[in-house]
């Protein structure tokens, strides 16, 4: 149990060497690797925290963006509804205008149809009146009426002025070949002489007069000199009456 100084000193030296060995080959490397691992873990935690912060920021940003999108969508929806409402009102206004125009057009068309119907009715009335007058005159026509019309013709020719005769001369030309006289009934000789005398006296023509008979004239005469035709008979008067009625309407 005695103290061996050699062992004592060698043990001190040995232990100090062992302290150096363990510090060099055990504590320092192990603490270094632990420190590096801790630093790596802290870095990873920091990165994770940073990622978490970034993710929160992105989440907030996306939420803001979603809110903005929602507002824009709402604005677009409001704008669209407003435009639809304006368009609807515009179309409604256009429709009203077109409807008014259509009504005006229908009114004008209706008025025109009414006028047309009235015109047709009036024309039909005139036609019926003319037919009635034609039938009545056809029934009433006879030699007496023709004699009366013959007298009226002679009286009319007798009172013609020089200007009227000059106008007529322009129509029948320089020298007509003949004068055609058409009557509903045969003209007696004295009437033929009176007519030829009046024509030669008033008109100044000495061309031969040719007589024909046309029962469709109903009563009266029809005198043709060149291109000029003098009509004084019931048929042509009725026809002229109907034409006058057409012209008036």
């Amino acid at each position: 149990m005695e103290l061996n100084w050699s062992t004592f000193l060698l043990e001190i030296f040995n232990f100090l060497v062992l302290v150096w060995i363990l510090k060099r080959f055990l504590y320092q490397p192990v603490l270094d690797v632990i420190s590096r691992r801790r630093a790596a873990i802290e870095n990873q935690l920091a990165e994770a925290e940073q990622h978490h912060v970034d993710a929160d920021a992105l989440k907030e940003q996306y939420e803001h963006r979603l809110a903005d999108w929602e507002q824009e969508r709402q604005k677009a929806m409001d704008k669209l509804l407003h435009e639809i409402e304006e368009n609807r009102l515009q179309q409604l206004e256009n429709l009203k205008t077109e409807l008014a125009q259509e009504e005006e057009k229908n009114r004008v068309a209706s008025s025109r149809r009414d006028k047309q119907v009235i015109r047709e009715i009036e024309q039909r009335a005139l036609q019926q009146g003319a037919e009635f007058a034609s039938r009545l005159l056809a029934e009433a026509a006879g030699p007496e009426l023709e004699n009366r019309l013959f007298d009226l013709l002679l009286d009319g020719l007798s009172v013609m002025s020089a200007d009227q005769i000059s106008v007529l001369a322009n129509k029948w030309g320089e020298s007509p070949e003949r004068i055609l006289v058409t009557s509903a009934y045969p003209l007696a000789d004295d009437k033929r002489h009176r007519l030829e005398d009046t024509l030669s006296r008033v008109i100044g023509l000495t061309v031969p007069v040719h007589y024909e008979q046309d029962a469709e004239l109903l009563a009266g005469l029809n005198i043709t000199i060149g291109a000029w035709v003098l009509q004084l008979n019931v048929r042509d008067e009725l026809q002229g009456f109907m034409e006058c009625a057409h012209v008036e309407h």
């Binding site: 062992t7 060698l10 040995n14 060995i21 080959f25 055990l26």
Partner: peptide, 24 residues
């Protein structure tokens, strides 16, 4: 004087040192 204590201590040092070197 080298006693068996010192020799054993060297053995212990060798074991610990080799283990530390091999592990680290």
């Amino acid at each position: 004087q080298l006693t068996n204590t010192v020799i054993t201590t060297w053995v212990v040092m060798a074991i610990i040192g080799c283990f530390a070197w091999l592990v680290t």
